[in-house]
């Protein structure tokens, strides 16, 4: 209860700061307008106006909410001006990238755990691959993948894959190595083959490590998709909305797209988390 209350306090504080910021940043424009009309105005007089500008520097929360309502509920889902339409496009790329990334990550982790040569040679490069700002690669990768006649969604998913596989590799390697020597010895006394030990011991005991990694991977995958869409903007998507908003000075559009992306991130992470909870519960990890 206190937890909820304190979260609420912080959220309210953020909204208050947001309103104050909107008033401050948008006031300049109102002053300029008044000066042009040869009027002097006080701050209190222009305060209501700062909340209702057409193209504010920082739109007030209720303006963003209004824009969200307009672009989600009042527009048809199939319309190109609907935020849901663009969110769906982004979701497709994100989901595909997430599946690729999780699959690649798990395969690499299995290889790394079972093969010492692979552990020594591949693992350092997996880590190094993440210090390369892959988002910088995005524009070029998309050009290349387009030239190879790949569908736009696959090209975007590639970027997502690159961003998301790392978390899965690290978590999964940790998880596959988590059974202790005693448990591995027990498998040996059962005369279990390597495969049997893998399927019956290593894989199940890696799941508590896998799911938190998958959460990170889902969030990373979304970031990849959004940035990829900034380059491949003709297909639409939340990233394209961000880009268009910044070209045409439509700040409300940018903020609405940002909120859309945030909600999508929240839903994805929550969905992975829930799947994890249910799976782990049915496997008897939590009690």
């Amino acid at each position: 209860m206190t937890r909820l209350l304190s979260i609420l306090t912080i959220v309210i504080a953020i909204i208050v700061i947001w309103y104050a910021g909107a008033a401050r940043m948008n006031a300049q424009w109102e002053y300029d307008q008044a000066e042009r009309a040869d009027k002097t105005v006080t701050f209190m007089e222009i305060l209501p106006n700062t909340m209702a500008q057409e193209r504010p520097i920082l739109p007030a929360p209720h303006q963003v909410a209004e824009e969200l309502w307009k672009t989600t509920v009042e527009k048809k889902v199939t319309s190109k001006r609907s935020l849901l339409y663009h969110t769906w496009i982004t979701f497709n790329a994100t989901f595909l990238g997430f599946i690729f990334g999780a699959g690649l990550g798990i395969l690499l982790a299995v290889g790394i755990v079972h093969n010492r040569a692979m552990d020594m040679s591949v693992m350092p490069w997996v880590i190094a691959s993440q210090t390369i700002p892959v988002l910088a690669l995005a524009p070029m990768m998309i050009v290349v993948l387009n030239a190879l006649n790949m569908e736009g969604v696959v090209a975007k998913a590639m970027i997502s894959t690159y961003l998301s596989f790392f978390a899965v590799v690290v978590g999964m390697v940790k998880g596959l190595r988590s059974p202790d020597a005693m448990q591995l010895d027990l498998m040996r006394t059962y005369n279990a083959s390597g495969w049997q030990a893998f399927w019956r011991l290593r894989l199940p005991s890696s799941l508590p490590f896998l799911f938190p990694s998958l959460k990170i991977a889902a969030a990373a995958s979304l970031i990849g998709a959004v940035v990829a869409e900034m380059t491949l903007s003709q297909d639409g998507g939340l990233g394209a909305r961000l880009l268009n908003g910044s070209y045409y000075g439509q700040t409300m559009m940018i903020w609405a797209a940002l909120i859309g992306a945030s909600v999508l991130a929240g839903v994805l992470v929550a969905a992975v988390g829930l799947t994890g909870q249910i799976t782990l519960k049915r496997m008897g990890f939590t009690r």
């Binding site: 520097i57 910044s246 940002l258 991130a265 992470v269």
Partner: peptide
């Protein structure tokens, strides 16, 4: 009190695609 509220929000924000604020900041 603040810690209990800020941690979940911080964790949520860490998962958001914050790079999206780039156009706003450039503006």
């Amino acid at each position: 009190f603040l810690k209990a509220g800020l941690l979940p929000i911080g964790n949520l924000v860490a998962a958001l695609p914050i790079v999206g604020i780039a156009p706003i900041m450039v503006m």
